[in-house]
């Protein structure tokens, strides 16, 4: 990167501005979470809140990457490495989530028979032999 003193001084101003922006957006996220007036949707945390929080976090992190980490003018090689890395990270998260959301469900008759959809902690516990006074040996 070019390094004349004037350039660097200009950069320093940019860094300070970016820092200030990051501060402001942090405050905004916290306000949305803590002050009911700013809350979207249902009180408490819900999908819009999560989306909003993540969008802001993504925005903040891209500022850090682009400005502080100089990714706004970096060599092609590094972009290539990062693009693949991010793709794999996303595939890890996405495909595991996909796998979790697409299980083999028992046949409807079986569900009715087993009441699988209706298991509660109490059921689980009541099946625990240890919970009843006399422990059973399997």
């Amino acid at each position: 990167m070019e390094s004349s003193t004037e350039d660097l001084q200009k950069h320093v101003r940019t860094y300070l501005m970016v820092g200030a922006t990051l501060f402001v957006f942090t405050i905004v996220t916290v306000l949305v979470r803590t002050v009911p007036f700013f809350d979207f949707g249902v009180p408490g945390v819900d999908a819009p809140d999560i989306a909003f929080g993540l969008v802001i976090a993504t925005f903040k992190s891209s500022l850090v990457m682009l400005i502080f980490m100089h990714l706004n003018h970096e060599r092609g090689l590094i972009y290539k490495v990062l693009v693949f890395t991010v793709a794999f990270a996303i595939s890890l998260m996405g495909l595991t989530l996909f796998a979790q959301g697409n299980p083999i469900r028992p046949h409807a008759d079986v569900i009715e028979h087993l009441h699988v959809s209706d298991v509660t902690a109490a059921d689980v516990e009541s099946k625990a032999p240890g919970a009843k006074a006399e422990p059973a040996k399997h």
Partner: peptide, 10 residues
């Protein structure tokens, strides 16, 4: 997982 039993005990 919730409710894992080993050797008959939770």
């Amino acid at each position: 997982p919730t409710g894992l039993h080993v050797g008959g005990n939770m």
